[in-house]
């Protein structure tokens, strides 16, 4: 650490990761709620959604809790983004199943 950063960039970045994790959790809860229709296919989709959520949280854990300015490699970014896209894709059949 050479100079003190007056912009508190690492802290802001860590808080941004936490907000994102919170948003991911809200989406997961909404998807699981939609799946509470009692049929097996929806339950399987909901299980996949929860797995994706857990994987995304594991991927961003170091960035959301670390203390250094640049923790581990930036692999967390594509992982969380693809998990989000996966949540969206899994939600499509959930919406269609809830319609009937």
């Amino acid at each position: 650490m050479t100079t003190r950063d007056p912009g508190l960039q690492p802290e802001r970045t860590r808080l941004a990761w936490r907000r994102t994790a919170l948003a991911l959790t809200v989406v997961t809860v909404l998807a699981v709620r939609l799946a509470l229709t009692g049929d097996v296919a929806s339950a399987l989709l909901a299980a996949a959604v929860v797995l994706l959520w857990a994987g995304a949280l594991a991927a961003c854990w170091d960035r959301a809790t670390g203390s250094g300015p640049t923790p581990v490699g930036p692999r967390a970014l594509p992982l969380v983004a693809l998990a989000t896209a996966g949540l969206a894709l899994l939600s499509v059949p959930l919406v269609l199943r809830a319609m009937w």
Partner: peptide, 9 residues
């Protein structure tokens, strides 16, 4: 995504 899930339910 949350908006879509909320609209559906």
């Amino acid at each position: 995504i949350a908006g879509g899930l909320a609209a559906a339910q």
